[in-house]
Amino acid sequence: MSETTLNGWIRAANNGAHVHERLTPTPKDCVVTIGPAGLDPLVGKLTLTVTDPGRLTFSGGDSIFDVRDRGVLSLTGLVLTGATATAITNNHGGTVTLTGTKVTGNSNQGIFGGGLANSGGTMTIVDSEVSGNTAAGQGGGIANAGINSSLTVVNSRVTGNTGLFGAGMSTSGGTVLVVNTRIAGNQSSPDGAGGGFTNGAGTVTIIGSEVVDNSSNEGGGLTNTGTLHVINTKVSGNRSTGIANLAGGVVLVTDCKVTGNHTDGPGGGVINGGGGTMTVANTEISANTATAAGGGAANTSGGVLRLVNAKVFGNKADAAGGGVANTGTGRTYLTNTAVDGNTPDNVRNG
């Protein structure tokens, strides 16, 4: 197989055929080198399935695949690496489905998407890995943008990516659904935010997942200025802060564990500020640390924080409010919530 073969299939798809190829690597661990310009743009339907998953690699290119309006790309069992401007660009009106695919070692010196870039299209990632990718801007692993964009990530891993905003994943519009996925070990640039995931203006739902061991100057785990729902998810070991809600964002955290996060500032577990609204229900906030107020939770700058049926314990701060700190013009409401065993105290108001 060669780049010429792949472009032939793309041209056939663009001319109206639904091209579906089953690929058997010969020899095993076969690498197909893609030229600097990447493959031809796709506006038709192309399906590539590797019979021995993980043994066929496409390497190189600007974007390896460039999916345009009406283009439909389905990949199963491939490895995509070495792209210099994201492995797959999915533009407005395009549809991309990745199953059992590894997207690793790609980079983008532009502003959008080191591994994958969904710009107004529909992208679905299932049983896949997005790891070790880099973006100079947002979305080191995966970037999503556009009011009509849709991104779904299921049973996957987004790990070890780097970027300025949202080193693991980022969205600046549209809808994102993340289910049973591990977002771990991603790191934003020193002046960036959102080591694991940054939601700028989209609607994001994260269910049954892990957001762990990510790092950033602000919002090591999750950073939100849009609408974010976090359900039955572990947010642990992130620096700085587990969940940061800022600039008027709306967050619902329910049936979660927010534990072992740290910040060099207020709000080790969660911080809500900038006029944002955060509701934390049926959730454990424990063993988080902060060098300022609010080892477990901090509410600042006119924000509204509600803790409902929650447990806040074993957190530590270097200022008053080891468990929960409400400062400035913020308002915090505790309903059937236990705040116990925090250091140096449990609650600070004012």
Rank of each mutant, 00 (worst) to 15 (best):
G114R: 09
L42V: 04
I10A: 12
V258R: 06
V270T: 10
T122A: 12
H229E: 15
N238R: 10
A298W: 01
G200P: 01
V179C: 01
S189Q: 14
G295T: 01
M1T: 05
A287L: 10
N108R: 12
S215G: 11
T233Y: 00
A290F: 00
T57F: 04
T99K: 08
K234H: 15
G168F: 02
T343W: 00
T152C: 01
V179I: 13
L23K: 11
D264C: 02
G173H: 09
G140Y: 03
D340S: 14
M278Q: 13
N161G: 09
T47M: 03
K316S: 15
S170Q: 13
D69A: 12
E3S: 11
G275C: 07
L177I: 08
V130C: 06
G249E: 06
S286N: 11
A17H: 07
R11P: 01
G82M: 06
I285N: 05
G322Q: 04
N133F: 07
N90D: 06
T99Q: 05
G160A: 13
N91S: 14
G341R: 15
T225K: 15
I231A: 09
D213N: 14
H262R: 13
T5I: 03
H20A: 12
T225M: 08
G260L: 10
I88A: 07
S189L: 15
L80S: 04
A193P: 00
T162E: 05
A117P: 01
E284P: 03
V179R: 14
S119G: 14
G295Q: 02
I142L: 03
Q187K: 14
V270I: 15
Q138C: 08
T181S: 11
T283Y: 07
T171L: 00
A12G: 01
H92W: 05
L56H: 09
N315A: 06
A298K: 08
L75R: 09
N299L: 00
G120P: 03
T181K: 05
S209T: 10
S301P: 03
G314V: 05
N288G: 04
G146Q: 09
T33A: 14
V250E: 10
T5S: 13
V158P: 13
N349I: 10
G113T: 10
K45Y: 07
T84Q: 12
G267W: 04
Q138R: 15
L228A: 07
L75S: 08
A338C: 04
S189V: 03
D345E: 01
G140A: 12
E284K: 12
I64E: 07
T335D: 13
A145P: 01
N299S: 11
S215W: 02
H262G: 09
K316N: 06
S2I: 02
C256Q: 07
G16S: 11
V178C: 02
A184G: 04
L222F: 02
V130D: 08
A292S: 10
G192D: 00
T4N: 11
T51H: 00
V312S: 07
A297E: 00
N309L: 08
V258G: 08
G194H: 03
T203A: 15
F58I: 02
T57I: 09
G35C: 03
V312C: 04
T104H: 06
V67Y: 06
N144T: 14
G237N: 12
A193C: 12
